[in-house]
Design a protein around this nucleic acid. Structure first.
Length: 593
RNA sequence: GGCCUCGUAGCUCAGUGGAUAGAGCAACAGCCUUCUAAGCUGUGGGUCACACGUUCGAAUCGUGUCGGGGUCACCA
């Protein structure tokens, strides 16, 4: 039980004894005491005053006295300022925490709750390489999965690959026309980048053709429709749907290049998936539901044969579910996949990590499932995240302002190398060790930078700020870890014993212990909010507090053996919590840096 | 235009009913004969977009206004 809940129930018990009636945790708040006041935790009395017909001082005194009397081991003192009852915790209760609850603190251990959750993230198109937006998606999805696991859930990570459609055909046509058989091997280019290059090539060519046609007097719309390269692409899409062998072969070949490229990037990022769905396999699934919905009258057909659902009663308008020619649209396949996921995996929840521009789409999906009487309609959660903007404005692939994922990773790792070389602290490292360190630091900086902001909010990517290794950054926290490990290497493992209790705890020692105790709550909160930034903020604050402690007090050369033992203990736990918290963010810790 | 969302220090962000609103960056001033200075300490910097309301108490809740963004496709 955490300090907050312990104090809460102690207060409830005392209040009930004092006033002979029931109280609940809703009746008052327990907060941490602000640093400018004496005490560790504060009971806010205002909400109780009216019903109990008490003055702040009167209630504070009664409650404070009784708490001290009943829980002499827990509290040592109290003071009342305005309506705030500030309680001081005893050294013993803090030290008890270090001794008894060691593992609970460090790993925020939660019992298994047997809830099965699927987290779908990344979900790229196969016509171009991953970019900065995908990175935010991947880091959030991976981290939320790990946070849910830490809270006792059974988690499946999944990805749906958007491997078919007109966009893929664009790359294919351009490759066919202009590549002269170029392959990743022959050009020494990563497969996803090669395919992406031909996607760009298509767009340039298309633009050129449209320009020529409008020059001949055609309207913009006509030109866009009649551009030869576009016509070829549309034909190719039809051929693909009809399974024309040479098109399927080319499609397989080029997608294969892309997957190999993605895998390399995923591997470097530490992203992993338990299941990968392919749109080419799932896009047909939804059609049977459309049929079913037509039969039971949930959907309706227009004259041209297209199928619609009317959601205007809940303000979501009419939505197209099937084109006039019978082919699927985006949402058709989603309906099919939802059902497959829930049934195959017996899921309790399905979380979709998708950008916030699709909030409307996901609401429609949930509503359709509801109308179809699917029992899991309310177990679908859209973890929507805001767009990553550049300081120069939005990223747009057509304007070449996207930040490529692979390039960004290289740049971060490079920066880590530069910094490390300048500081010259690891000259005895082998080449292998150095390489690993640079990856740890570079990726740590990048992940922390993208995860430290609330997913739901839009964020600005500032290239200079992102490669900063000082302040509120991954390397700052990693550095704290490395410094602790450096101490621990020089000293034998701490033994915690009765001796600890003789000298009073100093303010920074108290502060650290109280802060460490919160870790378990932080993990719960992060899971409830599906928000890794909660963990990032916590671990930064922890490292910051430790750094103050480190500067102020010596561990290895402490004033006494007792203090040394205590501080070694605090340091060890801090290191474990840092490692555990960063692990939830997908960030590794270096033993030295 | 309808719906959704955001507006906190020069910049990037914490803070969702409690005390005098906090970090990082940037600026300035200090701290390495003692466990790693990728660190620590201090200074300056705020009409929490604005107005009204609810409350003992509002950056936080409600209504309205202004401003930014998203969305409302036989695109995905």
């Amino acid at each position: 039980m955490s300090f907050t809940t312990t104090i809460q129930s102690a207060a409830i018990e005392s209040l009930e004894e004092l006033y002979g009636r029931q109280f609940s945790e809703q009746d008052f708040q327990v907060n941490e005491t602000r640093p400018e006041f004496k005490g560790d935790y504060t009971i806010v009395l205002f909400s109780l005053l009216k019903t109990l017909k008490e003055s702040p001082e009167g209630l504070g005194k009664k409650l404070g006295d009784l708490l001290l009397k009943k829980h002499a081991a827990l509290f040592t003192d109290y003071n009342i300022i305005k309506g705030f009852l500030n309680l001081s915790l005893s050294d013993d209760s803090l030290l008890h925490l270090l001794k008894e609850n060691y593992n609970d603190i460090c790993f925020g251990k939660k019992p298994l709750n047997h809830k099965k959750v699927m987290v779908e993230y990344s979900s790229p198109n196969t016509n171009k390489p991953l970019h900065l937006g995908h990175l935010r998606n991947i880091f959030i999805g991976w981290s939320v999965s790990e946070i849910l696991k830490a809270n006792g859930n059974e988690v499946y990570k999944s990805s749906i690959v958007n491997d078919r459609g007109i966009h893929i055909c664009k790359s294919m046509i351009a490759w066919q026309e202009f590549a002269n058989g170029a392959t990743p091997e022959s050009t020494n280019t990563k497969g996803d980048h090669l395919v992406g290059d031909y996607y760009v090539k298509f767009n340039n060519e298309y633009k050129q053709e449209v320009k020529e046609l409008t020059g001949e007097g055609k309207s913009e719309k006509e030109a866009e429709k009649e551009a030869p390269i576009m016509k070829k692409t549309q034909q190719m899409l039809l051929d693909w749907e009809h399974g024309k062998p040479d098109v399927i072969d080319l499609w397989n070949k080029m997608n294969g290049w892309v997957y190999k490229g993605f895998d390399e990037t995923y591997k470097r990022l530490g992203a992993d998936f338990d299941e990968t769905f392919y749109e080419s396999k799932t896009y047909i699934l939804g059609k049977e539901f459309v049929k079913k919905g037509l039969e039971d009258g949930s959907f309706y057909k227009k004259e041209d044969g297209s199928v619609w659902i009317d959601l205007s009663d809940i303000g979501l308008d009419e939505k197209l579910l099937l084109r006039g020619d019978g082919t699927s649209v985006y949402i058709t396949q989603d309906i099919g996949l939802v059902k497959q996921k829930f049934e195959e995996y017996k899921l309790d929840e399905s979380i979709y990590v998708i950008g916030d521009e699709q909030i409307y789409h996901m609401n429609v999906l949930k509503e359709i499932c509801r109308k179809l009487g699917m029992p899991f309609a309310d177990k679908i959660f859209h973890l929507s995240y805001g767009m990553v903007e550049l300081t120069t404005g939005k990223m747009k692939s057509r304007e070449g302002t996207v930040v490529d994922a692979d390039e960004l990773i290289d740049e971060m790792v490079d920066t880590a190398k530069k910094h490390t070389e300048e500081l010259g602290k690891v000259k005895d490292f082998t080449q292998e060790e150095l390489k690993e360190l640079y990856e740890t630091l570079g990726l740590g900086a990048m992940k922390f930078y993208l995860l430290r902001v609330d997913p739901k909010k839009r964020m600005v990517f500032n290239p200079e700020e992102s490669i900063d290794f000082h302040g509120f950054t991954g390397p700052f926290v990693q550095y704290t870890y490395a410094r602790i490990k450096s101490i621990l290497r020089k000293v034998e493992e701490p033994v915690i014993d009765q001796q600890l209790q003789k000298e009073p705890l100093l303010p920074l020692e108290r502060q650290l212990i109280i802060f460490l105790e919160k870790y378990s709550n932080v993990i719960s909160q992060a899971a409830e909010e599906q928000n890794p930034s909660v963990v990032a903020n916590y671990v930064f604050h922890l490292a910051k507090t430790f750094n103050s402690f480190y500067t102020e007090h010596s561990v290895a050369n402490a004033e006494s053996e007792e203090k040394k033992s205590l501080r070694l203990h605090i340091s060890t736990i801090t290191a474990m919590v840092i490692k555990s918290a960063l692990q939830l963010l997908g960030i590794k810790v270096p033993e030295r840096m």
